[in-house]
Amino acid sequence: MKKVFVGCCLIQICFMSGCARVKPYEREYLADPIMQGETQFGKQSLEDKFFSTREGSIGGAQGIGGGCGCAK
């Protein structure tokens, strides 16, 4: 599994070094509402909460959650 993590890091580094810098005035599309993620301010989204209480996996999303008896 370490290989997966290292692989992801390498891909990221390649992108960082290989891609052109995106200037502030070129970010119109990136600022569009449909490009925004689901992350809420420090909070696990309701969808993530649904999946984490019905599946054996958690983590990998930006929000922080837990503290629910349903996830025993």
């Binding site: 992801c8 891609c19 995106v22 070129e26 993620g37």
Partner: peptide
């Protein structure tokens, strides 16, 4: 990481 004016890459661990 912004890849281009239309593309974003994100990694979470």
């Amino acid at each position: 990481q912004l890849i281009s004016p239309t593309t974003v890459l994100e990694i979470n661990a």
